[in-house]
């Protein structure tokens, strides 16, 4: 399968880590995009589908990585992307 065929499916892989993963009780899901959307818009959409996720997705400080690169919430997500959401990191 070529990259363009993957992109035509409209799917985004969403990953959650740390406390966010535990609170949502979900480590990953496949999100369907109807058109390119910002990370902020995807978070709001998820919160409207799952109201109990709203405090964790929209009221807490979260970081975002798109295709394993740190990005801001206004970054646009496209089909085939991997979007990870997580709290500030605490390693070391």
């Amino acid at each position: 399968m070529t990259g363009s065929e993957i992109n035509s499916t409209g799917k985004v892989t969403l990953l959650f880590f740390g406390q966010l993963k535990e609170r949502l009780n979900c480590d990953s899901l496949v999100y369907t995009l109807t058109e390119p959307a910002t990370i902020e818009a995807i978070k709001l959409d998820l919160a409207s589908q799952q109201p109990n996720w709203q405090p964790w997705l929209c009221e807490r400080e979260l970081l975002a990585a798109l295709n394993q690169t740190m990005v801001g919430n206004d970054t646009v997500v496209n089909s085939g992307d991997e979007l990870a959401l997580f709290p500030p990191v605490t390693g070391g």
Partner: peptide, 18 residues
């Protein structure tokens, strides 16, 4: 400590916390 994508949870005798 600031950038690497690790998350740490502390476990106590009867509880735990991120």
């Amino acid at each position: 400590k600031n950038q690497a994508t690790f998350w740490k949870k502390e476990h106590f005798e009867h509880s735990s916390k991120w």
